[in-house]
């Protein structure tokens, strides 16, 4: 197991490097000149020249990349060009927000998606199955943006039941923090729940027809035991992979949901940084989220082994 872990970690280093090269390269292809944007309306030539020099904008892309890499290896992700806030601080400010939103959304998705998938599979072909499928399809097709705005209009503006958005740190007020998470977590989670539901359903359907399940039933086990202990355990393997991927995506930010609910997470940070050509921020966040993604996938591999002992070898 240790060797497996180490080899997986070793493979991830070049992956990270490739990701940063790609992002750096793609950014350099973007049209637009950050110096002109930063110089403001006045367009003072001296100011523009200074910005170019300070952020090495006239250097060739490979030189800029190497300079950035040397900085990163020393533990310095640089400063935001726009706000002058250190990128590490920005990541530390956004991480709890994004992590919290990812956690709640995943919880919503799991609590709705997996039971619904099991029910749909067990009751295949019944009205319950059709309803679960229809609701799942709706969850997949309704755009987050629209659902978010609708919830704000009805629940926050009309009923005044929940805050329309924003983020309150739990240290300031736990109640406000949780209240602020309900709608965005539901909006984000419902889409993922639909994906979970469909995957759980199909994995359960194939598990339920497998020989070992027939054997378990023949042994006279309770139906509940057969489903939960035998079928579900195997069916969960692909769902865990999917969960890790979805969680990785949630960690890289949910731009639309964050925009609608005004949540200061990674998604808004990156999008605004791209529009502002704030290279240091884009690079820093990409590096961070790519690392998180890789670690989450590693975690998923470890979870397989826990769920399915045959994979432990």
């Amino acid at each position: 197991m240790q060797g497996f872990l180490l080899s997986r970690l070793a493979i991830s280093m070049p992956t990270l490097l490739i990701v940063t090269v790609l992002v750096f390269g793609l950014q350099s292809l973007l049209p637009g000149d950050i110096a002109l944007v930063l110089a403001g309306e006045e367009n003072d030539p001296a100011g523009i020249a200074f910005i170019r020099e300070k952020y090495r904008l006239d250097d060739p892309v490979p030189i800029r990349y190497l300079a950035w890499l040397v900085q990163v290896v020393q533990g310095d992700l640089g400063h935001s060009i726009k706000t002058q806030i250190p990128v590490t601080d920005l990541i530390l400010q956004k991480l709890p927000v994004t992590a919290q939103l990812a956690f709640w959304s995943m919880l919503v998705a799991l609590l709705i998606g997996i039971p619904a998938g099991i029910i749909a599979a067990v009751k295949k072909g019944t009205a319950l199955d059709h309803t679960a499928n229809a609701v799942g399809l709706a969850g997949l097709s309704i755009p987050n943006f629209w659902l978010g705005i609708m919830l704000i209009m009805v629940v926050a503006v009309e009923w005044g039941a929940l805050p329309p958005g924003g983020y309150t740190p739990p240290t300031e007020s736990l109640a406000d923090n949780l209240a602020g998470m309900i709608m965005p977590a539901f909006v984000l989670g419902s889409g993922i729940a639909a994906v979970f539901m469909r995957h759980t359903r199909s994995a359960m359907l194939s598990a339920l027809t497998a020989d070992y399940v027939r054997t378990a039933r023949a042994k006279g086990l309770f139906e509940r035991t057969v489903i939960v202990k035998h079928a579900l355990r195997n069916a969960l393997v692909p769902v865990i992979t999917l969960g890790a991927l979805e969680l990785g995506q949630l960690f890289s930010g949910a731009v639309l949901t964050e925009t609608v609910f005004n949540i200061p997470g990674f998604g808004r940070l990156v999008v605004e940084a791209v529009f502002n050509r704030d290279y240091a921020v884009v690079q820093g966040v990409v590096l961070f989220t790519a690392t998180a993604y890789i670690l989450l996938n590693l975690l998923a591999d470890l979870l397989y082994a826990l769920v399915n002992p045959r994979l432990r070898g």
């Binding site: 704000i152 209009m153 926050a156 503006v157 005044g160 329309p164 958005g165 924003g166 609910f261 005004n262």
Partner: peptide
């Protein structure tokens, strides 16, 4: 001061008392 780029969302926040 809270930055809320989307005009509809900004207005909804005012209407909702946030």
């Amino acid at each position: 001061y809270r930055p809320i780029p989307d005009t509809t969302v900004r207005f909804s926040n005012l209407q909702a008392g946030a």
